[in-house]
Design a protein around this nucleic acid. Structure first.
Lengths: 389, 389
DNA sequence: TTGTAGGCGTTATCAT
DNA sequence: ATGATAACGCCTACAA
């Protein structure tokens, strides 16, 4: 029975239905004998015209003749509800195919159960693996994943972050672009109370939770291995100078040289922006120098592949004349000949760990308590650097 | 005028506002002369305790001394609002860093401005490119992207779809797993009124909008090319038999053979499940047959790479003894030696097109009007099949 | 031109 | 044990 109020006397107990006019329910108030119809309240907009009505808690409440609050409580096993009511409501909710509306829930709870990811390049196999790990960990925990791709453009990254912050995500996982040197956009958002987690290309000057790969150890192991193969003139094809990963991998390289009492040669250390042009220029320079390297440690597998293909074109034998090693264990390394020595950073696990750090911050309740997690990878020795067999 | 009840006499018609105390509205009941303020009703939960308060329309309304509806209208340039009010409100909203709450908006509008993607494997370079295209097109149009990864598991795909449907996405783009033979889960959702778009691995038995790559033409061009190189015994290393792409690419293959008056040999057509084991078994069988192929057309680049590496291990010369071609133009094809002949399906464009089809359905307003779009790719002839130079 | 009121669906608090 | 209510933030039909 609808509680319709009489517009005249404002009573509802005396209102009865009295037929239809132009499709509208007509009512009569027995008290003041006033006839009226209720005008339609709201024009349906486009979306709701298409979207089929989803069963709501109110629908169930009507169906079982109880209030919405009872239904809500029954559905989440609230202690106060009798077993009989609970099982009735649960059954009806299944029959009516009830699906809670996450928007309403989030509006109230202020949590969206969604994590945002800002990643430089989805097509880069390393990032694809990380994303896969993130996706896996998040969905296992019942969280959704929203992605943005910065395309290695700092400007886009800033815009992405803005978008993400507007969308009430519960946390944001960020890997910076190779261009990013200023982190003002991150600082600006830090006090908003939503966790920001860094991975791989992190930001040193801000205290956030972060997932690192063991850049230094990895690079050290690679360099150790190259030295072990008899190389003394080991060049490093690095990335952009400002990148955290560049710095750390170089540190590992230096550590190994020092440990093995090999002097460092400045000309053997070159920074690139990861583009083919910059890589080939560097390699050319080395090849034509008076003291060419006997090994090239490339800071990414992609640069290593570009380097090796160039060396092959120049008929320089790998590893006999020059050993080559990469970093990242992209699957391209297994395809090129000779197969590429590399360091597997366990990208999938990095993604998983980033999600775990997010949960740590949320569960601990202390969002200022940042953590650093380092994923230990594994050196993979393959033919591109193997002189001793 | 808010209907506030006097806590003492319980009347509401006699209650008036009487200034502010500590930021709270103070009231007075004219009937019993009782002064009171409304105490905060609700305990803040965890999330809202952390999340910094975001400026709302109501905050702006208070700041400018107007109602929320005026602010709402002013912000979207509603005609009824005076220019003066508009500019005032806009300025204040900027000063207060107002960001509309998309949850509230969506709850009302029943649109989330979000597209869902169900994709078998994020680490597969083809899918990564498609995803990149989707992401690009969606974010250009101001839409967000939510991803799920089915991991090539039908069961997971079904669960993913369920999740997506519950989350009030405006549309869902699906590429089925290689296992998927039953499409009941899709059919079940079709009448819900939200567009489902298929791409690549589509479903023939349901009428949805879909983006295809020109499987048939591509396969025909590849086969033509192999024949042109003098191959007569062209084997096909296909995917699972039930897959749409398998069927279509085989059709292209047959068409080419027929056109060139070459009889088909059943033993040269083999289905695999894309796993290394099944591929190598097949190749082995062919190699040891009495009439081994002089070319292998692999239905994916990944299988082609596996095949080539195996042939190389067996010291079988590619292309001299056996020509190999793939399909998909993964970048691995440029790295292997000899470089792999393949067909570039323009994966990025496929992703973009899928988003376009979604918009077509939404904008046209006719969600039953499905469209099919075929992205034309490009044959890339490389050394793995080049006998005539 | 601006304000009021009610609804979108859910949930916690308070009252019964 | 259950119901009424308000709140989350935004939007629009209608009233003024």
């Amino acid at each position: 029975m609808p509680r319709v109020k009489c517009p005249k006397c404002n009573r509802d107990e005396t209102v009865l239905r009295s037929g239809f006019v132009r499709g509208l329910q007509r009512y009569v108030c027995k008290f003041c004998n006033f006839h009226f119809t209720l005008v339609k309240k709201r024009q349906k907009n486009n979306a709701s015209a298409f979207r089929k009505h989803q069963t709501t808690i109110l629908d169930i409440a009507k169906a079982v003749g109880m209030s919405a609050s009872t239904v809500s409580r029954a559905l989440k096993n609230h202690g106060d509800i009798s077993e009989a009511t609970k099982s009735l409501i649960k059954q009806v909710s299944i029959e009516m195919d009830y699906q809670p509306n996450p928007l309403a829930r989030s509006l109230y709870s202020r949590e969206t159960q969604t994590i945002g990811i800002i990643i430089p390049d989805l097509e880069n196999p390393f990032f694809a693996k990380v994303l896969s790990g993130i996706q896996h960990a998040a969905s296992t925990a019942g969280y959704k994943v929203m992605i943005c791709q910065s395309n290695e453009s700092h400007k886009t990254e800033v815009a992405n972050l803005q978008t993400m912050m507007q969308n009430w995500l519960d946390g944001i996982l960020v890997c910076h672009t190779k261009e990013t040197k200023s982190f003002e956009h991150i600082k600006l958002q830090l006090n908003k109370g939503i966790p920001i987690i860094h991975f791989d290309r992190i930001c040193e000057e801000i205290d956030t939770s972060r997932v690192l790969l063991d850049n230094e150890n990895g690079a050290e192991q690679i360099t150790d291995h190259l030295i072990d193969q008899g190389c003394l003139n080991i060049a490093v094809l690095a990335g952009p100078k400002h990148l955290y990963i560049t710095k750390k991998r170089l540190e590992g390289y230096f550590k190994s040289l020092q440990k093995n009492n090999i002097p460092t040669t400045p000309s053997l250390i070159a920074y690139t922006d990861f583009t083919k042009v910059s890589i080939l220029q560097t390699v050319d320079l080395w090849l034509s120098s008076e003291n060419p390297p006997d090994a090239i440690f490339c800071i990414s597998d992609n640069s290593a592949i570009i380097t090796m293909m160039y060396l092959k074109k120049k008929n320089i034998k790998v590893p006999q004349e020059i050993c080559v090693a990469g970093f990242g264990n992209d699957y391209t390394g297994e395809i090129i000949e000779p197969a590429l020595t590399s360091y597997d950073p366990y990208a999938f696990k990095i993604g998983q760990s980033a999600v775990e750090l997010f949960f740590d911050q949320v569960i601990s309740g202390d969002r200022a308590a940042t953590k650093t997690k380092t994923v230990i990878g594994k050196l993979l020795i393959r033919d591109s650097s193997l002189r001793k067999k």
